[in-house]
């Protein structure tokens, strides 16, 4: 799911440089997608173009310490539930 959504995210950097009216044209949309594939991901997103987009998002999530805090708490909560039920 993340990978599919990421493919939407890339064109937004291009959309900012193309007049909005042109984006109504299917061809312009296609061009913006193609252009996006040849761009770097910007700060915070790995610049390695060979990396699959969903991998890039997962890399950011898994290296984010904020992600591990709720995950560990969730595991502990499940353990408590298993014990008391």
């Amino acid at each position: 799911m993340a990978g599919m959504a990421y493919s939407f995210q890339q064109p937004k950097t291009v959309i900012r440089r193309v007049p909005a009216c042109l984006l109504e044209l299917p061809r312009a949309k296609l061009c913006s997608h193609v252009m996006a594939l040849h761009q770097s991901g910007g700060p915070g997103v790995p610049n390695d173009n060979s990396m699959h987009p969903s991998s890039a998002i997962w890399t950011q999530i898994l290296t984010d310490v904020h992600f591990w805090v709720p995950l560990i708490v969730l595991a502990a909560g499940l353990a408590v539930l298993h014990w008391i039920r």
């Binding site: 993340a2 959504a5 995210q9 998002i57 709720p70 969730l74 499940l78 039920r85």
Partner: peptide, 27 residues
């Protein structure tokens, strides 16, 4: 979601936390 697709994962994680917490409150 097109703007911030990573938040799908965060949303699902928060939902899991809520479900376990709610079950614990009933116990």
């Amino acid at each position: 979601i097109q703007q911030a697709p990573h938040l799908i994962v965060w949303g699902i994680l928060a939902g899991c936390l809520w479900a376990v917490a709610n079950t614990l409150t009933i116990f």
